[in-house]
């Protein structure tokens, strides 16, 4: 597959259809890391395998990347879902993007270069049933705790946060150029690494992600102190599922959950 991926990237670069290909190269030890390929000879460095987990969609909204104009991106499943969400939020310009993604057949590479193509490909490839993973287990474990235990658990977790905002930087949907945590008039969230501000930050992050998070896990992956941030966004995603009952397709492509409503939204707690 990597051969086909390299060939396709080379073709796009030499024909000058795109200015840059965003992909992966070998990192330190046995990892891979994101890389930008500008010249045909750069393509040699490219790798693509199961280890390529970074969500490259995060680069698509960066001003200096947008300035390159047409570009190609190598996308795994998670990157694809983020791209669809970014399209629905009008963050990606039509036909500026070539998406290279592995097809179902061995060694096959699929090139998608219109928004319709990307959407229909993603809708076909979404699995209907998701296997429970370690995040689901954690969420279930926390849900079983008493309220006091939950509070204690999260206080201990939030206390470890060093407020590096790596979770924000790694997230493709966290693309605001000005963030509430940096607003200082008024100062909403204390900037120091203290459990009060840390808790507020993580609640804000999860709330601002509600209806937008594609559950790619880049935030938790990026966290240097291993706070399981995906549990928070997963809980929000789950409550959206329970309360508003959307299909994945509606969730990804429709209006944002919190900027739309139904007159008969059903709650049980308002008097």
């Amino acid at each position: 597959m990597i051969k086909a991926m390299k060939n396709k990237s080379l073709e796009l670069l030499t024909s000058q259809e795109v200015r840059v290909v965003i992909g992966y190269e070998k990192g330190t030890k046995c990892s891979t890391r994101p890389s930008f390929f500008f010249l045909p000879e750069d393509i040699e460095r490219m790798v693509f395998d199961e280890e390529c987990k970074n969500n490259l969609a995060v680069y698509l909204t960066k001003e200096n990347i947008k300035n390159y104009g047409r570009l190609a991106i190598i996308a795994n499943d998670k990157t694809l879902q983020s791209i669809v969400k970014l399209i629905s939020e009008n963050q990606i310009r039509e036909d500026n993007l070539f998406v290279l993604t592995p097809g179902s057949e061995d060694g096959q590479v699929i090139v998608l270069n219109s928004i319709e193509e990307i959407k229909s490909f993603v809708n076909k490839s979404i699995p209907s049933q998701k296997e429970p993973d370690s995040v689901d287990e954690l969420v279930a474990r926390i849900r079983k705790m008493s309220r006091e235990e939950r509070w204690k658990y999260w206080q201990d977790e939030f206390a470890r946060c060093i407020r590096c905002y790596a979770c924000r930087a790694a997230c493709p949907l966290c693309y605001c150029t000005r963030c509430t945590v940096e607003s200082s008039q008024p100062q909403w969230v204390p900037v120091a690494s203290h459990v009060l501000g840390n808790m507020e930050w993580h609640i804000i992050r999860a709330m601002h992600m509600s209806g937008r998070c594609t559950d790619c896990g880049a935030c938790a992956e990026a966290c240097p102190v291993n706070i399981n941030l995906q549990a928070l966004t997963r809980v929000v995603r789950e409550s959206i599922q329970d309360e508003f009952n959307l299909t994945t397709e509606e969730y990804l492509e429709g209006n944002n959950v919190l900027s739309s409503f139904k007159p008969n939204d059903n709650e049980t707690f308002i008097r």
Partner: peptide, 12 residues
């Protein structure tokens, strides 16, 4: 509120 209430309940 529906989402927020579930979230803050989850964090205790």
């Amino acid at each position: 509120w529906m989402i927020f209430r579930n979230l803050i309940d989850f964090v205790g």
